[in-house]
Simulated assay, not measured.
Amino acid sequence: MKNAGCGSARRLWALGGLTGATLLSALWLLQLLRRAPGGAPVPQPKLVLVWHWPFADRPPELPSNTCASYGVAHCHLSTNRSLLASADVVVFHHRELQTRQARLPLAERPRGQPWVWASMESPSHTHGLGLLRGIFNWVLSYRRDSDIFVPYGYLEPHDGPAPPLPAKTRVAAWVVSNFQERQPRVRLYRQLAPHLRVDVFGRAHRRPLCAHCLLPTVAQYLFYLSFENSQHRDYITEKFWRNALSAGAVPVVLGPPRANYEALVPPDAFVHVDDFGSARELAAFLAGMNESCYRGYFAWRERFRVRLFSDWRERFCAICTHYPHLPRDQVYHDLEGWFQA
């Protein structure tokens, strides 16, 4: 594709009203607002039963005010399976169903009880959906067309001065744990490395970073390779939101098309690999960027800040936020077809 020069993506992000991340943030905040006194009656508390906690042998402790701490009122989470008959909604995380660590209690399912399918993985790493036809009523995922949309992150409005950018002493960084030559991201890295200094961290390169070391390390770099492990609709993970934007580095993205990113952040907040005809052109653009052009990629920090959305407790509490507006008679008869589309 044509090489996009510095500033070519600088256009009014909110042209014609709220769009992009502004609209996303506004909708998100509106969903969390309580009704004013004198409005509709206060809703009865909803019980969300989590059948198997994601990626855990033992569930975390869930105090009664768990959801209130995330700004979601009238919502209780539980992992007590004996409450199946009385739960307002039951949520199942797909990884445990896929690995058969959990089974669906189909014979014990109360009539009319909504079930939620939950996953934050990409279609490339999601298997067995063909066995789940006609079971789930709602979907919780990063997909924007999900019934319960829970992105990995988003931009929320922010007042006050933008925080200063960290001092930059290095060019580009990439943190990767699953490094396989067949992956498009690895092939792109191989093409990019001869023309641009990229420091690679992760177990595969014997340069692991501790949990608290990642952001301070990446903050020293001008650019971060936010390369997703697979390219799918709306699949924009912590590699973009946390590893790059939160660290104060410009994300160089390999993932869904540019328009998908622009629905969430300003068009000049990232560099998309699709804007260049080759890895060599991309490297030349990054290496030749002047300070004024570079700082333009952080203009969004004057009005917004990154809000990470990574805690499964908060994700499950979001079910209650959406609950009053979700269709009661909906069934996913072809969950695989929907998710793989």
Rank of each mutant, 00 (worst) to 15 (best):
R10S: 08
Q180H: 15
P251Y: 10
S226V: 07
D88V: 14
S146Y: 01
E156A: 11
V331C: 11
L209N: 06
S122C: 10
H127C: 08
T22N: 11
D57R: 14
L47K: 14
Q183V: 04
I148N: 03
P151R: 15
W117F: 14
V271G: 02
K239V: 03
Y294M: 07
Y152M: 03
R11I: 08
I236V: 13
L264T: 01
R315V: 12
L49R: 01
E181V: 12
A73S: 13
E238T: 05
A68F: 03
L47R: 14
P266R: 07
Y224E: 05
R280I: 06
P123K: 09
G38Q: 06
P110A: 09
F339P: 01
W115T: 12
R203H: 09
K2M: 08
F136R: 03
V271F: 01
N137A: 08
P327N: 11
P43N: 02
R295C: 05
G17V: 04
S292P: 00
P251G: 04
V218C: 06
A211G: 00
V273M: 02
L30P: 00
H322A: 15
L32S: 09
H74I: 05
Q330H: 14
F136E: 13
R305K: 13
G134N: 08
A56P: 00
V331H: 08
G20N: 01
P324D: 04
S141N: 08
D145Q: 15
M1N: 10
P208I: 12
P266E: 05
S122R: 04
P123F: 13
L165W: 09
W174K: 13
C6G: 04
R258S: 06
W338V: 06
K168L: 01
D268W: 07
C293L: 14
A68L: 14
S310M: 09
D145L: 10
L84P: 02
C75S: 07
I148D: 03
G277C: 11
Q220G: 04
Y332T: 02
P267E: 10
L326N: 04
R295H: 14
A118G: 01
R81A: 08
C213E: 11
D57G: 15
S246V: 03
V139W: 03
W300A: 06
G16H: 03
Y261R: 03
G255P: 01
S122L: 02
N290W: 01
D234H: 12
K2R: 11
A162L: 09
A162M: 08
V50C: 14
P54M: 10
H93Y: 15
V273L: 01
K46C: 04
S146G: 01
A287F: 09
R206F: 13
P161K: 05
A211P: 00
R103E: 10
S8F: 07
N290Y: 06
R280H: 15
A40S: 07
P166R: 08
D145F: 14
